[in-house]
Design a binder for these strands. Structure first.
Ligand SMILES: NC(=O)c1ccc[n+]([C@@H]2O[C@H](COP(=O)([O-])OP(=O)(O)OC[C@H]3O[C@@H](n4cnc5c(N)ncnc54)[C@H](O)[C@@H]3O)[C@@H](O)[C@H]2O)c1
Ligand SMILES: NC(=O)c1ccc[n+]([C@@H]2O[C@H](COP(=O)([O-])OP(=O)(O)OC[C@H]3O[C@@H](n4cnc5c(N)ncnc54)[C@H](O)[C@@H]3O)[C@@H](O)[C@H]2O)c1
Lengths: 207, 207
DNA sequence: TTTATGCTGTGAAAATAATCACAATGTGAA
DNA sequence: TTCACATTGTGATTATTTTCACAGCATAAA
């Protein structure tokens, strides 16, 4: 069974769409319908679902609820996962206000900053701590995933502390490439790179 | 010459790193050094640079300044590109405060919202308009790229207006998959999907 | 029952992407 | 000059990802 990044991302996207369908009361869906909704081919959908071990029926397609359950078994951790967020600036606050409640198994449970004015507060139900306490707190709470939203000047040192505290996955919004051990999964979400790419294809696709 | 998304993204990333090196006064770099800094193989770097038509020297590697210029010729639009941003909530404001000045050829030049309290203002040097005026303004300013940061309930209708106004590329932060013509390039940046992926690999890589 | 229909699941093929591996080359030391 | 060396540029190879295409199947209609 292949667990490449691109496949996992598609499967997570299927679930997002299926959850919406489920809320709308849909009971069944065919591969080509799911495919349309997320702009992949129906063969791709069937292949992906085959890989997670879920089977549909030729006549009724896939059962939305069962499929959601199968994806959860394939993707989700057993227990709820706490997430740490470092950097309570504009972006960090936008994320906190937005994220909790959006994902079944994931929750931001600890916030960190170095600015004394921003620590020891409760933002969107979540406590903020000084960055110096990070290691202790993420170990105590068994936090394995973190979001970095500090300026790029500070991102590497924050990453070092996170790694030291046992973090295994980082979502990095700072526009630098972090130097971390190979065993750590890093997802960079640099907006400059992204917009440059979008702008490139906006122009290039229409020459 | 191959212009796949993944290759373009790498090339844009090379430039980001090269610009930093250039500011630090670096004159030359070898493929393996650039490769290290962005976690790809040196063969990959050489292949990518070959594809954009830039040649280094075996003894000195690549000249940082020339390489930046070659990448610009390959990637950049001829003229500065204006970008529209729709949705002046938490995320939208964080983006405006952050983005302008970060990229040489790209600039957010028009903001849109539907809330009357948020229109006809200047935020970070940029004017905000009512969403109803979007088409007129993006046409007048020849805007081809837009950022969507409205709630997911409104994202599709915003996308429709953008497409109607001639937008060719969209960076979408709302957690839905937009339905747009094939000729429009869309980059989704749904944070829930992303964090679920990071959490998955944080756990899975260390089973 | 039987048959027609329109899916699924999946080997096989095709397309795409990454790596290998090495001749060619420019440089500096002797 | 000559030679040793480290790196480039790239054809060939390998790996990965996607698509094709169709047998097999569940259902509904006759
Ligand atoms: N604002 C955006 O939309 C946006 C988009 C993409 C990327 N980014 C990136 O995200 C990061 C944050 O952006 P922002 O606009 O929120 O910046 P900001 O300056 O508003 O906030 C940064 C926060 O990080 C804190 N901080 C700084 N150093 C720290 C450290 N060592 N430890 C702990 N906390 C520390 C600061 O006290 C501040 O609260 C930047 O790297 C930026 O490039 C921002
Ligand atoms: N906050 C985050 O960090 C974050 C992260 C990822 C994704 N998102 C997504 O980004 C979007 C915005 O998030 P937010 O936290 O800024 O929300 P928000 O509610 O703070 O802001 C939304 C803004 O969009 C405006 N708006 C709504 N409908 C509109 C329309 N039809 N036309 C023009 N403007 C309209 C509203 O007036 C408001 O100003 C949401 O889809 C959210 O899911 C947010």
């Amino acid at each position: 069974m292949n667990r490449s990044e691109i496949k996992i991302e598609r499967i997570i996207t299927y679930r997002r769409i299926l959850l919406k369908l489920y809320n709308d009361g849909e009971k069944n869906i065919f591969s080509y319908q799911l495919a349309n909704k997320c702009q992949v081919s129906s063969a791709q959908v069937r292949r992906d679902l085959m890989d997670i071990g879920y089977s549909g029926s030729p006549a009724n397609g896939y059962e939305v609820q069962c499929l959601i359950k199968s994806i959860a078994e394939f993707i989700d951790p057993d227990k709820k996962q706490g997430i740490a967020l470092v950097g309570l600036g504009n972006l960090g606050r936008a994320i906190i206000d937005y994220f909790n409640g959006q994902s079944l198994k994931l929750e931001i449970v600890a916030l960190f900053d170095k600015n004394p004015n921003k620590i020891n507060r409760v933002i969107a139900g979540c406590h903020s701590y000084h960055i110096n306490d990070l290691k202790e707190i993420i170990i105590k709470n068994n936090i394995k995933t973190a979001v970095i939203s500090v300026p790029s000047t500070d991102a590497q040192q924050v990453a070092d502390v996170l790694v030291d505290g046992g973090i295994k996955g980082i979502l990095n919004y700072a526009p630098i490439i972090l130097n971390v051990p190979d065993s750590i999964y890093v997802q960079n979400r640099d907006m400059i790179t992204t917009l440059e790419k979008v702008s490139y294809f906006a122009n290039y696709n229409n020459k």
